[in-house]
Nucleic acid binder design. Structure first.
Lengths: 107, 107
DNA sequence: CATATAAATCAAGATATATTGATATATTAA
DNA sequence: TTAATATATCAATATATCTTGATTTATATG
């Protein structure tokens, strides 16, 4: 029950659904990429990333001071179905601003 | 997005997950059946039933003063998957107390 | 070591959701 | 119509969650 509720709670937020959709679309991203792309402050993103990670949706890979988050694979059945559902939602996705690659990250 | 978030929000509560599991196990039940079986007060159940109905999980059929709730069919893909997930959760289900059939409902 | 940067965490305030007890509504039966 | 019963709604309180700005931690570099 706890694992299910944690998974569902993670999905129960518009910001996190947008983030999942954004990762699904663009692959691995660091926090500063998300800051630039989604126009949200760092503490807010960091909190939501933690919730999504602890709910089993995301994984992190650290490279120096950067933390690259991406959708965890494989996802179990229910999480996959949730992601598939999110993939078909009519969401207006912001453009990707990939600062981490160009080394210009000073937001 | 709104429909998805409403569906997810409905799932994001231990009481409602238990109720869905109970309906899945026992079929149509009225509020007084649930009161007796789950040991919860009527206003609490009524509120959760409304949320589950408006999220597309339940339907109601009225017979006199009774309101019989049951799982709506057919459920769309994501709601079915959620229900399937709930079906496999390790939940301790209370025993069914079906007062509405015997006409003894005066809780 | 000292500084700079990316990310994580914390504290405070705002918003949303759940629970309870009281009241309102609707249907049935006398 | 009146009384009784099942359900729905409301008001108040408690609890949880989200957002922001400030602080802390960790890593890289001069």
């Amino acid at each position: 029950m706890d694992d299910f509720l944690k998974t569902v709670a993670a999905l129960n937020d518009e910001t996190r659904v947008l983030m999942l959709r954004f990762f699904d679309e663009h692959g691995a991203l660091c926090v500063c990429d998300l800051q630039a792309s989604l126009g949200m402050i760092q503490s807010r993103l960091s909190r939501h990333l933690k919730i999504l990670k602890e709910a089993g949706f995301l994984r992190v890979e650290r490279k120096g001071t950067w933390a690259y988050y991406s959708i965890r694979t494989p996802l179990d059945r229910f999480r996959s179905e949730a992601l598939e559902e999110i993939r078909h939602l009519d969401i207006e996705l912001p453009e990707l601003q990939k600062l981490s690659q160009t080394g210009e990250c000073t937001i």
